[in-house]
Amino acid sequence: MTPRPDASARRAIRGASGSAAGLEAVLPRPGAARPALLGRLLEDERSLAYLLLTPTIVLLALFIAYPFVLGVWLSVSSATVGVAGHFVGLKNFDKAWNDSIFRTAAFNTFLYTGVTTVFKLALGIWLAVLLNRHFRGKRLIRAFVLLPFIIPTVLSTFAWKWMYDPTFSVINWGLWKLDLITTRVNWLGDPYLSLISVMIVNVWRGVPFFAISLLAGLQTISPELHEAAAIDGANAWQRFWRVTWPLLLPVTMVVVLFSVIQTFADFQLVYVLTGGGPANATHLFATYAYQIGVGTGLLSEGAAISLAMFPVLFLVVVLQLWYIRRVETR
């Protein structure tokens, strides 16, 4: 028995305007009738949309929503490694707030993120403008600029650790040879200098991301705008400030957004370089949360410290997305 074409197939036949290829494509084949319900679902745009979204929703639920909800639950529980714990309200947050190491870590995180972002942005724009010019070996240089970003962070950080070595620092050796210092600089041992040293590594690693992203932004700006501004008598600075910068702003905001999120939650650099020392001078939220959650087994307190980052990051994201939207609809 040959099955009759269902309603959707008939619509498709009409839509195919008599095309033989269309008929071939949509006519049900003998013996291959699909269940009517599935067919209806696939034909309905709304249900098809949900169907196509399902894999993404499942993935997001599994790998983003579930860990987040679990993290929230842990932070309000008394869970330790191997012990489920019970609800304790905001006790863990209260303990963190009264913990001087947490406060140091919080202060360090804000300072670290703020200072490095400013430097990464300034150096990134500068580098992007330079790389946007025409010169011999431009492509090679552009590729090299990306190196700090490409090398696995742990590897490059170990290299920096050796460069900062209190006894064998190549940086100290260089400065001493240039007669710029007479005694060793204690890059990672001095309480103030250690955080600056960590910041330098972060800036070194982060500048390529800014430079390449902003370079892509720069290349979308029509040269005619610069030419017109030049004809009107604008100097180089005025052309940058009045033409380049406003057009680059939306890209810059996105790049800054990503960078702030990554820097605020930074872990690897500090873990490898100092482990949060000396005397907690370089602890960040993430390193301290790890120390408490994994090193001490206090999962709930580690989760609370980790979640302390969330409101700040959420605010940053909301503000920046709002700004980007405003710029785009202007």
């Binding site: 209190p166 006894t167 041992g189």
Partner: peptide, 21 residues
């Protein structure tokens, strides 16, 4: 003391000792 010790990990002292510093 060597004041760099504030930044040492568990292997720095091995290197410093064996290099005679």
């Amino acid at each position: 003391h060597d004041e760099g010790g504030l930044a040492w990990d568990d292997s720095n002292n091995n290197r410093a000792f064996l290099s005679g510093t």
